[in-house]
């Protein structure tokens, strides 16, 4: 059995006076000893899936096959789940107690995790006195105290600057290797998803594709052409030109993404004011096409 396995999940939010909202619809997924990133627009079901896995949201139908209990599970939320009036050490002691660890075990784990995450010298400070980046690392330490086999990261670097994000991920990836956890990451940041072993892209409660970042990029061929049109009216002309050339273009606002593109397309563009870029495909190209147009390129 995989560390994380869900099958045919359906979650519907029903609120009085509001139309029902389907958050997950027939969603299945499994992950084991890997880092799986979820990419999708707001409302695509990422946080709901985390809620089902952490057993705080009950699906209307379908099954959470594993994890079967909360014992081997930890969650890092969008904002730190730390008591700002407590010191880092007091927060970590609390985390140990919430998972039933005795004092000696908790102390040993605190010592090793704060050393691993580079916050040993700040352990006696109240969380309210820490910077955002340090508070995130302290929150990661909190989640690691029980030595979870499954770690859920729900947009864990929201609001952090570039250095703090890098520092968070350096710590995270180092610890992940030493503990051998299965990590499920919800993120909007493409570069964070690139660090994952596999990426699942979500749209309206469905999984639209799941594979390694490299395999997902390769679905668009060796190169893509990105065309930005200046005028709305140029879009249709560009699309018809590409069609006559035998290419399928995917439109996202005034951007056209053309998978499997050739260099000679740069020469024949009928709209001189359009900006054309030929480049290897990125995960963002795949994301834009799969989650915004819903098309399988």
């Amino acid at each position: 059995m995989s560390a994380i396995e869900v099958r045919d999940l359906r979650v519907v939010y029903r609120r009085k006076g509001e139309p029902d909202r389907v958050a997950l619809d027939g969603f299945s997924l499994s992950a084991d000893r890997e880092m799986l990133a979820m990419l999708g627009p707001n409302g695509s079901g990422k946080s709901t899936l985390m809620g089902v896995i952490s057993q705080t949201i009950r699906p209307e139908s379908g099954a959470l096959i594993s994890p079967t209990s909360r014992a081997g599970l930890s969650v890092v939320f969008q904002t730190p789940a730390l008591d700002v009036l407590l010191t880092v050490r007091e927060n970590l002691q609390l985390a140990g107690a919430m998972h039933g660890l005795d004092r000696a075990t908790t102390k040993g784990r605190i010592d090793s995790v704060v050393a691993e995450l580079g916050i040993a010298d700040r352990i006696g400070e109240q969380v309210r006195h820490l910077s955002g980046g340090l508070a995130r690392r302290a929150d990661l330490a909190r989640a690691l105290i029980p030595h979870p086999s499954v770690l859920l990261l729900d947009e864990p670097t929201t609001g952090l600057d570039i250095d703090a994000r890098r520092s968070f991920w350096d710590s995270m990836l180092r610890v992940r290797q030493s503990l051998g956890m299965t990590v499920l990451l919800a993120t909007h940041l493409i570069d964070e998803a690139e660090r994952a072993d596999r990426v699942v892209m979500m749209r309206e409660g469905h999984s639209v594709c799941i594979d390694t970042p490299k395999a997902l990029r390769s679905t668009l061929g060796e190169r893509v052409l990105r065309i930005v049109a200046q005028e709305e009216s140029d879009i249709d002309r560009l699309a018809s030109w590409l069609q006559t050339e035998g290419f399928q273009a995917h439109r996202i606002d005034r951007l056209l993404i053309v998978p499997h593109a050739r260099a000679d397309l740069l020469e024949g563009c009928p709209i001189p004011s359009a900006s054309l870029t030929l480049a290897p495909p990125t995960l963002e190209d795949v994301y834009s096409i799969r989650t915004q147009t819903g098309v399988n390129p």
Partner: peptide, 13 residues
């Protein structure tokens, strides 16, 4: 909503 209880609620306690 934004405090330590979120972690408590997903713990085995």
């Amino acid at each position: 909503q934004d405090g330590v209880l979120r972690a408590a609620l997903v713990s085995p306690a």
